[in-house]
Design a protein around this nucleic acid. Structure first.
Length: 267
DNA sequence: AGCTCACCCTGGACGC
DNA sequence: TGCGTCCAGGGTGAGC
């Protein structure tokens, strides 16, 4: 379940590839290509100029009007490997680089996708502000919560409201903030909105510092697991004692997503 | 407009 | 051992 910290970790681990020449782009399974403005062959000989992140999207800039945008969905991986190693089943797109290396897009469940587009903004323009950026102010968060009856967890999972938070970090953020995930967003008091904003920044930064969470499938750009799973306070801990107060962790379905919270710490 | 829910998909866990 | 069933969930879009 790659979310913002996992995508950020991948992007950081791939920075050494800036300046590398693309030998070719192999599209093995065309169904993962969500949009194709140009032919894969047009990338031959182009240089990787920039690798960045917006929300949960990886954006590779290979020219002013040539972008490769990648979303990993649930089970996707995007990692560097030796071309000599056999490509595992479910490897859908491969960018062949110099010196016998290649970047592989692998996704068994195929919830993710790849965009070969002229303008990366086309994919990411619908996203809300970055939770670690300057636009996610207390005023902004208060305004999107106002008069909303939807559960606060569902709201922060909405990528059009805030970009990058997924199910695991949403549960951890709400536990840190002391807010029950099923609270209607509009019921949050101003001080709770501020607690939520602070918890978002703290938890996401902690996730990045620990190179992401490997709960099942996640690997970084060098195919290495993350470490944040050892620091999870509620996600995946149904029935176990809350690490803060000892109360058993509850599990409930909110907005169709499995949700974990402490009934004592979170009100 | 806001909200809920079904759907897409495969691997792994589990029960018999 | 092997088969069937269930569960995981990001994003989209239908429908209320």
């Amino acid at each position: 379940m790659p979310e913002l910290p996992e995508i950020e970790t991948i992007v950081r681990s791939l920075q050494p590839l800036i300046g590398q020449r693309i030998e070719q782009l192999d599209v093995i399974n065309n169904v993962v290509i969500k949009q194709q403005d140009y032919l894969p062959g047009e990338l031959r000989g182009q240089t990787i100029r920039r690798i960045s992140r917006r929300g949960k999207f990886i954006i590779i800039d290979v020219g002013r009007t040539r972008f490769i945008v990648i979303h990993l969905g649930m089970s996707g991986r995007f990692y560097l490997d030796d071309a000599a190693n056999s490509r595992p089943k479910h490897t859908h797109v491969v960018m062949v680089l110099q010196e016998g290396q290649e970047l592989r897009y692998f996704d068994p469940r195929r919830f993710g996708g790849v965009w070969l587009i002229f303008d990366s903004n086309e994919v990411v323009r619908r996203l809300g502000p970055e939770p670690l950026g300057p636009d996610l102010t207390q005023d902004y968060l208060a305004s999107v919560c106002q008069n909303r009856r939807v559960a606060v967890k569902t709201l922060i999972l909405n990528q059009g409201v805030i970009a990058g938070i997924g199910n695991i970090y949403a549960d951890e953020i709400l536990h840190r903030a002391g807010i029950r995930p099923d609270r209607p967003a509009g019921s949050l008091r101003p001080e709770e909105v501020e607690l939520l904003r602070q918890a978002m920044a703290e938890i996401l930064k902690l996730g990045i510092a620990n190179r992401g969470t490997t709960f099942r499938d996640y690997r970084d750009g060098l195919n290495l697991p993350g470490e944040f799973q050892s620091m999870l306070k509620v996600y995946g801990r149904f029935g176990q004692s809350c690490l803060t107060c000892g109360e058993p962790i509850c599990r409930d379905i909110i907005g169709g997503r499995s949700s974990h919270f402490c009934p004592k710490c979170q009100t």
